[in-house]
């Protein structure tokens, strides 16, 4: 847990691209909100592992979103139900119904579609917001934070040791 937190701080304080962090958070949210064993999550995993997306932020977002999803499932069910029963969209659904790949994606399942649509709608705002926060943190907040007495105190703890170790890593996934 400490190592995980240390990695997050490392990523936040490193030169890692704010986009990498933002994509990590947004994609983790998709994985967490939607049913795990869905076809689109294979795509998400492919993107996360193949492109330079921050894994720490991705895993954090996945964990938090999974917990949130338990509470939000009725909302996802409602959204999916409304979309799948909307008259205007019926031709699309009927067409997709004939496509094997769409069947694999289980697009006609209310929670699967509802959670995916909600995740996609939130994706861009979450992406932009995360990037903005990271940028502002690095330029305006980080220096002040480092000067805080509490931070100085933390630097003397076991946690800071873990952080230092992570900082020293030249791991290929950390950038």
């Amino acid at each position: 847990m400490l190592t995980m937190l240390a990695r997050l701080l490392k990523a936040l304080n490193s030169e890692t691209s704010p986009w990498a962090l933002a994509f990590g958070l947004a994609l983790g949210m998709i994985l967490g909100f939607t049913p795990l064993w869905s076809l689109h999550n294979l795509v998400v995993l492919f993107v996360v592992l193949t492109f330079r997306v921050n894994l720490s932020f991705f895993l954090l977002a996945f964990a938090l979103s999974s917990v949130l999803a338990f509470a939000l499932d009725p909302l996802f069910d409602y959204v999916g139900e409304r979309l799948l029963t909307a008259e205007a969209l019926l031709p699309i659904w009927y067409a997709l119904y004939e496509v094997p790949l769409a069947r694999l994606a289980q697009f006609n399942h209310t929670i699967t579609l509802g959670s995916l649509v909600v995740s996609l709608v939130l994706f861009v705002p979450v992406l932009l917001l995360t990037r903005w926060i990271v940028q502002n943190y690095r330029t305006k907040v980080r220096a002040r934070v480092n000067q805080l007495y509490i931070v100085q105190l933390v630097k003397g703890t076991k946690f800071w040791g873990a952080y230092e170790r992570v900082s020293g890593w030249k791991g290929r996934f950390s950038s």
Binding site: F70, D73, D77, T85, W93, Y97, N108, T110, T112
Partner: peptide, 12 residues
């Protein structure tokens, strides 16, 4: 269940 969702049929 609203926590389990359901499949909606679009069979022509």
């Amino acid at each position: 269940s609203r926590w389990a969702g359901r499949f909606i049929d679009f069979d022509r």
